[in-house]
């Protein structure tokens, strides 16, 4: 079966900036693929190369088996693109914009009409369709943007950070919509720097950092590769160092425990890395009880995608975000982006 999107050794530079250094990804038909990475990782650039908006320096990109570089026209027919920033004509109404969009994709009149009605219903835009888009709130704009992107029922829908800056309600509406699309057979490529968004939505995820793919696979697989679960244990609200050390020595001897760290920043709580097995938590509790040590709180958790990112880059996604802020000259970038290429 031909891949929905195939990216091989994609490279794209803007002057001295290596926006994408080496990205290879395969996105299978019918899946939701999440592209995760901190600010400036190269997500948008990758997507612009897929959507025929930018020419790669080198590498190969195919959509539904059609090469993007040589047959952009055919690729565009299969693609829906929802940009990071919603761009609407504020003088037109939602319905008028949808008519325009339908014509750009050459939908015949009656079918366009039918699609527009269906989209209005699906995204609950009845109340808004005949208002000028200049009067819309952020959430309504995003819903109209989704409606526009899906009007021609593309095989592949590409969304660049679709939920950034949205309220929680709209965000979950977007998620629900995307799940519905997948149920209808649409392949979805979505970028985000929200871990939980990718975790809940995507079947597969590619983590990208400084223009390279540093991990790709099913979220569960990626986390499993990191090994066991995390257990956080607090003996008391403020445990003394001595008490914590006693506990650490005891726990380190348990066969299911791989590592124990005392986290001084959190009142000397103990962070354990344990084999993934149901009894781990009980074993820890029993050990404490036998030694006569108290338990103030205990919790077990799976590794998160952030742990995956941490393992690959040695820093957390949040740290990377913070580092990226201030490094970028946004105004210059916008200018550059317009020059395109």
């Amino acid at each position: 079966m031909v891949a929905a999107i195939q990216i091989k050794h994609l490279k794209k530079t803007y002057g001295p900036v290596q926006a994408v250094q080496d990205v290879s990804l395969t996105i299978e038909p019918g899946e939701i693929f999440g592209l995760l990475g901190p600010n400036g990782a190269g997500k948008t650039t990758t997507i612009r190369c897929v959507c025929t908006l930018a020419t790669p320096d080198s590498g190969r990109v195919e959509v539904m088996g059609i090469p993007v570089l040589t047959q952009p026209q055919r690729v565009r027919q299969h693609l829906g693109y929802i940009a990071q920033e919603v761009a609407l004509d504020k003088v037109l109404t939602g319905r008028e914009l949808m008519r325009l969009q339908a014509a750009l994709y050459h939908l015949p009149g009656p079918l366009a009409q039918q699609r527009i009605e269906a989209m209005i219903q699906l995204l609950e835009l009845e109340e808004w369709a005949d208002q000028k888009t200049g009067t819309y709130s952020g959430g309504i704009k995003k819903r109209l943007d989704l409606a526009l992107g899906m009007l021609h029922q593309p095989d592949v829908l590409v969304l660049d950070e679709p939920t950034v800056g949205l309220d929680i309600e709209t965000r979950s509406a977007v998620w629900a919509f995307l799940r519905q699309l997948r149920a209808a057979g649409t392949t979805i490529l979505i970028t985000s720097h929200y871990l939980e968004e990718i975790d809940t939505l995507a079947n597969r995820v590619g983590i990208i950092d400084q223009g390279r793919v540093i991990a790709a696979g099913r979220p569960a697989e990626l986390k499993d590769q990191l090994g066991g679960d995390r257990i956080t244990l607090r003996l008391q609200e403020f445990t003394t160092p001595a008490e914590a050390e006693t506990a650490r020595l005891l726990l380190a001897h348990l066969p299911c425990v791989q590592d124990v760290i005392i986290n001084a920043a959190q009142g000397n709580s103990l962070n354990l890395l344990v084999d993934r097995q149901a009894e781990a938590l009980t074993l820890v509790q029993q050990t404490m009880a036998t030694a006569g040590l108290p338990i103030f709180g205990i919790s077990q958790s799976r590794p998160s995608l952030d742990d995956v990112y941490l393992a690959a880059t040695g820093r957390t996604l949040i740290d990377a975000e913070l580092a990226a802020v201030g490094q970028r000259d946004l105004k210059r970038e916008k200018k550059q982006a317009m020059k395109g290429g």
Binding site: A118, L122, L123, Q153, A173, A176, F177, A184
Partner: peptide
Amino acid sequence: LPTPLSNSAGAAAL
């Protein structure tokens, strides 16, 4: 906001 979004009839309409 949409509860209707979660119904699966939407997929068919799409």
